[in-house]
Simulated scan of single mutants.
Amino acid sequence: MAPLPASALTRFVTRAFTTLGVPQADAAKVAGLMVEADLLGYDTHGLFRLRQYVNRLKGGGCNPSATPRVLRETAATALIDGDNGLGHLGMAMACDLAMAKARLAGIGWVGLRGNNHAGPAALYVRPQAESGMIGICAAVGSANHVAPWGGTDLLLGTNPLAIATPGDKDAFVLDMATTVAAVGKIKTLAQRGEPMPEGWMVGRDGQPLTDPNRRDEGFLLPIGGPKGYGLATAIGLLAGVLNGAAFGSDVVDFTTDTATPTNTGQFVAAIDIAAFGELGDFIAAATRSFAELRASTPLPGHEPPRIPGEGRSALRAKHLTEGIPLHQALQAELDRIADELSIPQLSES
């Protein structure tokens, strides 16, 4: 199948959600954010995740007609309950509210509980950077795939963190799991029948795992050893415990258990740069720093250094013009979803 227009993919996902009882406006909003992830190149967290969302809606673990609402609020903070809906809805609401508070108070911090998986964290920090702010977002992973450093029990998730600021050519966007690799990358390799590199996972005997289909036999390794373990725990406290959301053994595996609410916790923050100085001065200083980083002499055999987030805007523009390419394994899975829901396949859209 040739690359497909973003509009066709958005219609397909919207139709899938509405067939499962999601209101049209909510379905379109989530579909748009999922396709935006693919436009930006976050292909492990865009349409690839539709299967999991469909299974949870069908299984009763996700509320199709959710209404996220604010439970607590101050001038600079808020706590949102996602009403167990599609996670993108609660996160988009949190992002908008954090930015609104930052415009008034200089900073806005919005926590979420009762939410669900919401795609890549980058989606909820790029709007701040595009508005002259700094964005920060983190989440408790939607399943535990990590053991505490030195242990073997699965008590932590990949617990991603994203930070974005205005940049020069592109916004600076750091979007990372606190593990060496995100689970989505491993699932993508499994779907494509490809091995994973040594060093991503180990078995409970401590030996490397390279077959992505055997991922349940071991656990993911944190970045930086005990430092990554500490960072994942800190995110769990800020995004989970602080919000009254799941953390540790309370986390529900949203892939294997499609009936139980996950009570996923996240937070989105916005910092108005104007509260600290001139936006133009920040961008100028950042631009100088980025130029220095890019100009660093590369190691033999390495490409020149790049800035996190660099090239995403150009890739998005390319995908909008030429369409979004889908791996044949993902195309086949989307066709199966269409058949299950009795909706037209992508090729018929």
Results as ranks from 00 to 15, higher is better:
V268K: 12
A129V: 12
A31D: 08
I307M: 12
I337D: 01
A78M: 08
L154Y: 04
D81V: 00
V268A: 12
G311W: 15
A275N: 12
A122S: 14
L231N: 08
G135F: 06
T165K: 06
G280T: 15
G225Y: 07
A121I: 05
A102N: 09
A269N: 01
G230M: 13
F17G: 02
V140D: 06
P166A: 11
C95K: 05
G114M: 06
D175L: 05
P298L: 04
V251Q: 10
G106S: 11
E73G: 02
I163C: 04
F247L: 15
G82F: 06
L97G: 09
L89T: 00
L346H: 11
V173H: 01
R126Q: 07
M91R: 13
R11Q: 01
A285P: 06
A269V: 05
L57G: 02
P300I: 06
D272Y: 04
L155V: 03
Q128C: 15
D96S: 08
A25C: 00
N84D: 13
L71G: 08
N84Q: 07
A164W: 10
T264C: 15
P3H: 06
P344T: 03
L330W: 07
G167W: 05
D335W: 09
Y53G: 04
L209S: 06
Q24H: 09
G46W: 00
L293G: 01
D216R: 14
W109N: 03
E198R: 13
L33Q: 06
R204A: 01
T210M: 05
A171D: 13
S289V: 13
M1K: 11
A66N: 05
A6P: 00
Q128Y: 10
L50C: 14
I163A: 02
L330E: 11
N55M: 02
G309C: 01
G311I: 14
P5D: 05
L315A: 03
A129T: 11
G59M: 01
T10L: 01
G280N: 14
L189Y: 10
R51A: 11
G225A: 12
I283S: 14
K101Y: 06
G323N: 11
R288I: 07
G141V: 08
S65I: 11
P120D: 10
L71I: 13
T262C: 15
E292W: 05
D96V: 06
I307G: 14
L104Y: 02
G157W: 03
A234P: 02
Y53N: 07
A329T: 10
L89F: 00
A259M: 07
G90P: 04
A92Y: 04
G277L: 05
L156R: 10
V125Q: 02
G167Y: 03
T321W: 11
D96H: 03
A78V: 09
A98E: 03
L86C: 11
T258C: 14
I307P: 14
E36W: 01
I324L: 15
M201P: 05
P208W: 04
V70S: 01
E292F: 03
A100Q: 13
A8I: 02
L320Q: 15
A177K: 08
Q207N: 10
